[in-house]
Design a protein around this nucleic acid. Sequence first.
DNA 1: AGAGCATAGTTAACAGTGTTAAGTAAGTGA
DNA 2: TCACTTACTTAACACTGTTAACTATGCTCT
Lengths: 203, 203
Amino acid sequence: MGVKERRARQKKFLRQEILDAASELFVRDGYENVSMRRIADKIEYSPTTIYIYFKDKAELLEQVCKETFGRLVQRLSKIMEQPGDSVERLKRGLIAYIEFGLENPHQYRATFMMPIPEDFDPQKFYEKDSPGMQAFSFLVRGVTECAQAGKIQTVNVELASQVLWAGVHGITSLLITDPTFPWVGRDKVIHSTVDTLVAGLGG
Amino acid sequence: MGVKERRARQKKFLRQEILDAASELFVRDGYENVSMRRIADKIEYSPTTIYIYFKDKAELLEQVCKETFGRLVQRLSKIMEQPGDSVERLKRGLIAYIEFGLENPHQYRATFMMPIPEDFDPQKFYEKDSPGMQAFSFLVRGVTECAQAGKIQTVNVELASQVLWAGVHGITSLLITDPTFPWVGRDKVIHSTVDTLVAGLGG
DNA sequence: AGAGCATAGTTAACAGTGTTAAGTAAGTGA
DNA sequence: TCACTTACTTAACACTGTTAACTATGCTCT
């Protein structure tokens, strides 16, 4: 009865191959400039084969993004377990988030800047163990640590976290869509944004 | 020789009719869910007629956005000419920006959250009198006034303005794409973001 | 008034899109 | 050996933005 398992393994392999091909094309050319036919060409299968493994193009993108944000979670977890000043650690985490977004603009755009699909299920997406939520809970943890150390004066940790998220998302998404804007220096704006936000929170 | 002018007037009229139809459809269904054929149906002309008045679908969207952001400029100018505390005025302007974005999510998304087109010309778009730049210069003016009144300690007005813009854009765009996220109260996050940013700047 | 021409708008088509229904060929289990 | 499942393909549908070629109207000039 090892046959079923071998088949399942093969199936998973092709699934991953599709995912990798889609990822590479999405990253290079952007979601809407990649057709199912082009992905199929790349892996040398017919376009319809993809539909055996993925519901539609949107799900394909969703899975690519999930993989990518898994890497963000790894990065954030490394930063958060480092010792030292809690405020500095929080700031490093925020900077890492921004840099991650700028390194993966297409996945970042797909996750946080594109209209949520019709069939979007919040209950499913906002589970605690989805990469997005894991990343956010690192932020909450960082803020909590700062508050406990008395470095931040906030009555509402959740609110403070959402404000920080909004702030870092702002500069990230703006730099992604408008790189031609006459910015007063990329790094300058990034660091200034993080410093201003944390300072504004009373840290 | 009044004939040419009458023709020009008629041409302008149809142009505006196309713009209005496109605007209504874009706002209701979103840019990518509206086809040129649907716009044409609405005004009861053939699809190709639109191409006599606009280069392509992107230019149509661009013009719709320009109209919309013109209204933002009007609103901001009203706020900025009001007397009173400079910090309060700045905050009111920032709140107005956010509310405007939430009231016009499709145009906001098109302007600040969608990939800039291939043929995008920064020189042309970032002219001083484009609605986007006008809006931004209101922000610079607001920050300058605060700095002059000693309410904000900043060596670089341009940098401070960009940080503020990033911040308000962050909460605006996040609320547009993720309204289902478990926000700690919409107004709460908005006001908290503005307060945090301005406080962080030393106001 | 009549010939020529510019303009506004049309029809038909191209090349592409995501997606699905129907069909095929190979391999498994009885 | 026969039936059945599985993996995959072909062909097609209903769209999309956009363009080339055409028509019909009405103005200009002789």
